[in-house]
C-alpha cells in the first residue's frame, strides 16, 4: 500500500467511524445497549429490563428461537435466552435484528444472505465442535456490516460500485477496492470496533475474506468465510454480485470437511432455510 492509499484509507476510516449509530436503531434498543454497557449491571437485571418491554421481549424470543441458533421453539423466556446465549451474543443479535431494515435498504437480498450465512455458520460450527457456535452465528449475521456502512456513508458512490460489479461481472470485493481502495471487510471491522464488539467478533468480520490472517479465532473465521461462499453457491439472498468467490485454500484445509460431511451440512442448511423463510420479514 503506498503512502497516498494509506492516507485515503485513514480518511475513509474516520468517515466510517463517524456513523455514530444506525438511523433505524429504535430508541428502546439504544437504551438496552446503554444498559448492557454498564459493567455493574447483572444478567438478571438486563433480563428483566428486556422483559419489561413486550415488543422487545417478543423480538428477542423470536430471534433466539429462529434457525440462526438451532434452539427452535425451546427458549421460552428472556432470562433463559441470556443464560444460554450469553450477553455478548444477545447484544450482537440485537444489533443484527435492528440493522436488518437498513441492510435490506442498502442492498435488496443482503438480509437474506446474512441470515442464510448465520444459519450455515451455526451448522458448521456445531459440526466442528466449536465451543460457542452462537458467537460464530452472530459474526456471520453481521459479517457484511461494512457494506451497510459504505452504503450509509456514500450512497451514490456505493450504488455506482454495485452497478459496475453487475455490468463488468466483477466480484463485489474487487469493485469496492477499485473505488474505495479497501473492500467492505475493513470498514466492517472498523465499525465493529467502534461499537465495542468483542474482539473475536471484530476479527471474524474483518477477516471473513482472508481467514488465514485471523490470529485469535482462526477456525471460527474460516467458518464464516466458508459459510459466505456456501450460501452464495446455494443461491440464497444477494450479497452484491452474482458469482461465488473462490474459497481460501488454507481455510478449506483448516476445516477439513469430508464430502460426506459437506453433504450433510447442505441438507441441514436446506432445512434451516425453510424454517428461516418466515423470519425474513418482521411482522410485529
Amino acid at each position: 500500500m503506498n503512502h497516498s492509499t494509506i492516507m485515503e484509507t485513514r480518511a475513509l476510516r474516520s468517515q466510517i467511524e463517524g456513523i455514530a449509530t444506525l438511523p433505524t436503531i429504535p430508541s428502546v434498543l439504544r437504551t438496552i445497549l446503554r444498559v448492557i454497557e454498564d459493567p455493574k449491571i447483572s444478567l438478571k437485571e438486563i433480563g428483566s429490563f428486556i422483559s419489561s418491554d413486550p415488543v422487545l421481549a417478543s423480538r428477542v424470543l423470536k430471534v433466539v428461537n429462529s434457525p440462526i441458533y438451532g434452539f427452535s421453539g425451546r427458549i421460552a423466556s428472556v432470562n433463559q435466552a441470556l443464560l444460554l446465549l450469553g450477553l455478548n451474543v444477545v447484544r450482537g443479535m440485537l444489533f443484527g435484528v435492528s440493522v436488518f431494515e437498513v441492510m435490506e435498504k442498502s442492498m435488496e437480498g443482503l438480509w437474506a444472505h446474512s441470515l442464510g450465512c448465520a444459519v450455515t455458520a451455526r451448522i458448521i460450527a456445531q459440526k466442528k465442535g466449536v465451543e460457542e457456535p452462537e458467537e460464530v452465528s452472530v459474526a456471520a449475521l453481521l459479517h457484511d456490516i461494512g457494506k451497510v456502512a459504505l452504503h450509509l456513508k456514500f450512497p451514490e458512490e456505493y450504488a455506482e460500485v454495485l452497478a459496475r460489479a453487475e455490468a463488468e461481472e466483477l466480484f463485489i470485493t474487487v469493485a469496492e477496492e477499485r473505488h474505495f481502495s479497501v473492500h467492505h471487510a475493513r470498514p466492517g471491522a472498523w465499525i465493529a470496533e467502534k461499537w465495542n464488539f468483542p474482539k473475536n467478533l471484530v476479527e471474524m468480520i474483518g477477516y471473513h475474506h482472508q481467514p488465514q490472517l485471523a490470529r485469535n479465532v482462526p477456525v471460527q473465521t474460516a467458518i464464516v468465510h466458508l459459510s459466505d461462499i456456501i450460501i452464495r453457491a446455494r443461491g440464497f439472498g444477494f450479497a452484491g454480485d452474482r458469482f461465488v468467490p473462490p474459497v481460501q485454500p488454507a481455510a478449506w484445509e483448516l476445516l477439513n470437511l469430508s464430502d460426506e460431511e459437506m453433504k450433510s451440512i447442505l441438507g441441514e442448511i436446506d432445512e434451516g432455510l425453510v424454517r428461516a423463510e418466515d423470519f425474513l420479514q418482521f411482522d410485529e
Partner: peptide, 26 residues
C-alpha cells in the same frame, strides 16, 4: 444451470471444483 453460472468465475480453484461437485450431487 444456475449453479454453473454462479461458479463460472471460480472454477480455476480445485477446491471450488470439489465444492461444485458436492452441490451437484446434493
Amino acid at each position: 444451470a444456475e449453479l454453473d453460472e454462479r461458479f463460472r468465475k471460480s472454477l480455476d480453484s480445485v477446491y471450488m471444483k470439489r465444492l461444485k461437485k458436492i452441490f451437484v450431487e446434493h
